[in-house]
């Protein structure tokens, strides 16, 4: 067994056992679940934003659709909120097609700005909709009626549910990455014009990536709702939700399988802990620290934290090559 393999096994074991390790502390167990939930959102974003290079800053549209689908399933039909997840995913794919067709032909920052505008549009409209509870928002079941409501005191069940979803999503992303679509997406990201000239249907593949990404972002929204039991226009469609997905993926390393997870692993605990230790004093110290750390990482590692590993690996392989060269 190589050392790398050993480290991998240890990491997987740690991830699986985490809730048991911190069993005594509900706060730490919850932190684990929050990291995974954020990682699901950021990884979903990564499909279109990282791999295809289409930087959407309006993914809150899909997150909100997921959250609202779940809660409306409860308020209108009386079903467990999670039953709304497939509806939310389907609806998101549809909405992604409607938004994607006109906006995906925009380049670079124009696409980002158009997605912000669409997300703000949806946020404002949602706050005027009676059906969605207007600006007051909607709450899930106040007390769990059955286990299907997925409403638990302990965060451990959430942890494993989120872990399963994240694993599935990462597996799918991995499959795409190594399949034909991944190849096309990378080509589009490098140079759309070149990709088109090679016969890649760039528009179509960007749209596929966008719709897939939307579906999983909606799933993250539905899961958010089952855990927190409430959504309003700001916590569903707010611009901060979109920005956080982008920031997490970028911080870890966009367009890399584990980039968003690494980003979530840094940012979520940073946000929660700094709020726990500094938030009570008022004065916003939490965000001064949070902002400064993001700033510093961007300054020194503009390609994300995972670029550190890559740098080491490429240095190592360079070293190996030199040795080989000498052997020759």
């Amino acid at each position: 067994m190589t050392r790398r393999r050993l480290i991998q096994i240890l990491l997987v074991a740690l991830v699986l056992a985490y809730p048991l390790v911190v069993a005594g502390s509900p706060v730490w167990a919850r932190l684990g679940a929050l990291v995974l939930l954020a990682a699901i959102g950021a990884s979903a974003w990564n499909i279109v934003g990282g791999y295809a290079g289409q930087v959407s800053v309006g993914h809150s549209v899909f997150f909100g659709i997921g959250a609202y689908s779940a809660v409306v399933t409860y308020t209108q039909l009386g079903l467990p909120p999670i039953a709304g997840a497939p509806i939310g995913m389907a609806l998101s794919v549809l909405v992604a097609a409607v938004i994607g067709v006109p906006t995906l032909k925009l380049s670079g920052h124009y696409f980002s700005m158009a997605t912000i505008a669409v997300a703000e549009l949806v946020r404002v409209l949602s706050s005027t909709s009676e059906f969605l509870g207007g600006a007051q928002g909607l709450g899930g079941p106040p007390v769990p009626r059955s286990v299907l409501d997925l409403s638990f005191i302990s965060a451990t069940p959430y942890y494993y549910i989120f872990l399963a979803v994240l694993a599935g999503l990462l597996w799918l992303t991995h499959a795409i990455e190594h399949g034909r679509m991944g190849f096309y997406l990378r080509a589009i990201k490098d140079s759309e014009r070149a990709a088109r000239s090679l016969g890649v249907a760039a528009g179509r593949y960007k749209l596929y990536a966008y719709m897939l990404s939307a579906a999983f972002t909606a799933l993250a929204g539905s899961l958010y709702l089952t855990m927190f039991g409430f959504v309003d226009p700001e916590s569903g469609f707010g611009i901060l939700i979109s920005v956080k997905m982008v920031v997490m993926a970028a911080l870890g390393g966009a367009g890399q399988l584990f980039g968003p997870l690494v980003g979530a692993l840094i940012l979520v605990p940073l946000e929660e802990l700094s709020n726990s230790y500094l938030g009570g004093q008022g004065a916003g110290l939490t965000f001064v620290v949070y902002g400064a750390i993001i700033l510093i990482i961007a300054r020194f590692l503009p390609s994300g934290l995972l670029s550190l590993l890559e740098r080491r690996r490429s240095a190592a392989s360079r070293a190996a090559k030199t040795v080989d060269g000498h052997a020759d």
Partner: peptide, 10 residues
């Protein structure tokens, strides 16, 4: 390009 969003958001 993402680094700009990251850095200026921070």
């Amino acid at each position: 390009m993402l680094a700009q969003i990251l850095g200026t958001f921070g």
